[in-house]
């Protein structure tokens, strides 16, 4: 890892992604510190998912530079993949595999040792309260449990950074609360959290928040500073003030 970067685990410099004439992500520049919980906010279609996919090495940038964990997103995508976890917006574990089979598969792919997989997945299942369900097919789990499982699978191999794309979409407030407890636990272990959300109460849980409008980052600071800057009492006000300027629709 490059020493100059110090504690900066994610760096974006004019990072841009175009699809034909459409600029999904428009020259974004920012940095994320090690151990941070970084909230990546924006309206639907603002370009959050596209930006996240570039950091995860799933999508090649059209312009600009980016690095994750010290590796270049353009040329070292496979290196990045060893050091991150990712939970996509759409639930994407194998529904026709059982709970323990999904954990085993991804642990194996990330190179966790055979002997370790068994003991650690049992410990994980106990912690998540999913031990009784270990032999159930994933498709039979309620959405809240699926999300918790997906998150746990994403951090099973102890990545440096985990990317979460709307991890709590569609789940009830209690399940959301529990999910954020898992996020805090992971952050305590030193994992950097990069998370997108549409829930403004969740934005308050983040150390720093950026707000994307039409492919650009229009604001980036701690939730407290943002509220001060926009003269509102909650993040909802900040978001409305910025998102109102958006020209792109849903």
């Amino acid at each position: 890892m490059n020493d100059e970067m110090g504690n900066k685990v994610i760096i974006a410099e004019n990072l841009t992604k175009k699809f034909g004439n459409f600029t999904a992500v428009d020259h974004i520049t920012f940095e994320v510190e090690r151990g941070e919980i970084f909230g990546f906010l924006g309206a639907n279609g603002a370009g959050k998912t596209t930006a996240m996919r570039m950091f995860c090495g799933l999508s090649r940038p059209t312009e600009g530079k980016g690095s994750v964990g010290g590796f270049d997103v353009r040329t070292q995508a496979e290196q990045i993949k060893k050091n991150i976890g990712y939970m996509s917006q759409k639930f994407s574990l194998y529904e026709d595999l059982k709970v323990w089979e999904n954990i085993r598969l991804f642990a194996g792919i990330y190179g966790v040792k055979e002997g370790e997989i068994k003991s650690r997945s049992e410990e994980l299942l106990h912690r998540l309260g999913l031990y009784e369900e270990r032999d159930s097919f994933v498709k039979s789990l309620p959405l809240g449990w699926k999300q918790k499982l997906a998150f746990s699978v994403a951090i099973f191999h102890h990545p440096k950074i985990v990317f979460l794309d709307e991890p709590t979409g569609g789940v009830d407030p209690i399940a959301r609360r529990q999910f954020w407890e898992l996020i805090y636990e992971a952050a305590d272990q030193g994992i950097t959290i990069f998370v997108t959300t549409h829930y403004m109460d969740e934005a308050e849980y983040c150390n720093r928040v950026s707000i994307m409008v039409d492919g650009r980052i229009d604001a980036l600071d701690t939730p407290r500073n943002l509220k001060e800057q926009f003269g509102t009492t909650d993040m909802d006000g900040v978001f409305r003030a910025l998102a109102r300027k958006a020209k792109r629709g849903d």
């Binding site: 799933l58 496979e78 993949k81 991150i84 990712y86 996509s88 759409k90 994407s92 792919i109 990330y110």
Partner: peptide, 11 residues
């Protein structure tokens, strides 16, 4: 189904 995404993000 979308599962390929979870595979593509692994090494």
């Amino acid at each position: 189904i979308g599962t390929i995404e979870q595979i593509n993000v692994t090494p």
